[in-house]
Computed example of a mutant assay.
Amino acid sequence: MNTSKAWVELALKILSCNQKDLARRVAVSPTQISKWKNGEHMSTDMEDKFRALVDIGEKHPEFVLWADSLEDADKWDRLIHRLAEEAQDSAETGYNTEPLQDDLGLLCVQVSDTLSNMGVEPPEVFPPELDRYFNGVDGSGDDEADDDDPEAPDPLWELLETNPYSAAIHDIFESLNDVWGFYVAYVAQAIDDDDLSLVDTTSNIEACLMDLAACKIQVDEKFAPKFRTFRYRVMKDYQKWLTAVKDAAFRTGTPLRAELLDMVSDTHGELGHTAEAESLGFNASRLHPDIYMNELLVGMRIIHQVLPAILKKLDINDFELDESSLHINMNPYLAYADTADDETTSTADE
């Protein structure tokens, strides 16, 4: 949702007023309120005025609207960040998943935006079974598993895995770990290369990684009815953006250490394994830093090993390489002259 529109809708909801009253409170015309509601840009100063008016602290208006109330937004905020912490602890790529650290305060609004794009309708109230999370699942305030039996299932996580909202968010975060690892290992460096001049054409690659991660999870389409359309759109966008990076790298001779389009086609688990191998230095022994040139060199070395064995197997001992056939005559006149000479010789022989 457009931020200007979100501010207007949130103010109308929280203040329980009409557009005329809202216009009076922020000292603008009712027409301007309509323009903002239709998506016209709102200045930072005016956003600050709206923020003070609706008193939502540092939260984003889109997220508060998604949660339906400031009270529920606080609950979703706490749950989302708890799930983010758990996902970071389980990451195995060797790279820190910066979006989950939420230094910019964008995590909650990114989650709500991604779920909305998937067609997920937020519940009218924060799920009561998840509400217990804040005071412990048994009301005691202890949300940890039984210390006396470390192998006993954690009742909190059983609860979170059962609820479709928390389960989907958890799966997206786990996927984001792997997608982010691949992005940092192979894509970010290419985008940041000044020689490629890609800032304008690929600014969305990092910004939309949450959406790409969501495309790689399994989700019930009854819960997310727009998932297929969402997935098709996101995948198509990333194919376009990553192809632009590859084309620019080819034009400037910049080596690419992985097939960037794997970011679209591979599962998040496969991306995670690839990123982990890079972080552990397993790719340091490559013959060439560029993956495509490396494949050519490896292929040629394989041929050098296999070809003698084939010749021996076929009992070919008198093979001689005709090096003249390895060169291309770039002068068309010489090529024509050679052809003419051949024809003349052939005619004379006849």
Rank of each mutant, 00 (worst) to 15 (best):
D318F: 01
P308R: 03
K313Y: 13
Y292T: 05
L321I: 09
E320H: 05
M293L: 12
L321T: 02
D318T: 05
L321R: 07
D315H: 14
K313H: 13
S324W: 01
M293F: 09
H304L: 13
I303Y: 09
Q305A: 10
D315R: 14
V298C: 06
E295T: 12
E320F: 02
N294G: 03
K313A: 13
E320Q: 11
H304C: 12
I316W: 10
D315K: 15
D290H: 03
S285T: 13
A284M: 09
F319V: 03
Y292A: 11
I303W: 12
I302W: 10
S324P: 00
I310R: 06
S324T: 10
D315G: 11
Y292P: 00
I316A: 12
R301I: 01
M300V: 11
R286W: 04
L287F: 03
F319S: 04
L297Q: 04
K313F: 12
D290N: 12
E295Q: 13
R301V: 00
Y292W: 08
M300D: 13
I303K: 14
N294W: 03
G299N: 08
K312Q: 13
D322G: 02
P308F: 03
P289F: 06
N317P: 00
K312E: 15
N294T: 02
I310E: 08
L287Y: 07
L307I: 06
I291N: 04
V298H: 05
P308D: 04
E320G: 00
D290E: 06
K312F: 06
D315A: 15
Q305F: 04
P308K: 02
M293C: 08
V306M: 02
R286T: 09
L311F: 13
I291P: 00
K312W: 07
K312G: 14
V298A: 11
A309T: 07
F319W: 08
S324L: 06
L314N: 13
E295H: 10
A309C: 08
I303F: 13
D322M: 07
S324M: 01
A284D: 15
D318A: 07
S285V: 14
Y292D: 09
P289G: 08
L314R: 15
D315E: 15
R301W: 01
K313I: 03
I316E: 12
G299R: 02
H288F: 04
E320Y: 01
L297T: 00
L311D: 06
A284I: 01
A284C: 07
E323V: 14
N317V: 11
K312Y: 03
S285Y: 09
D322N: 15
F319N: 01
I303S: 11
R286S: 11
K313R: 14
I316S: 08
M293W: 03
M300L: 15
D322H: 06
I316T: 10
K313D: 15
N317D: 13
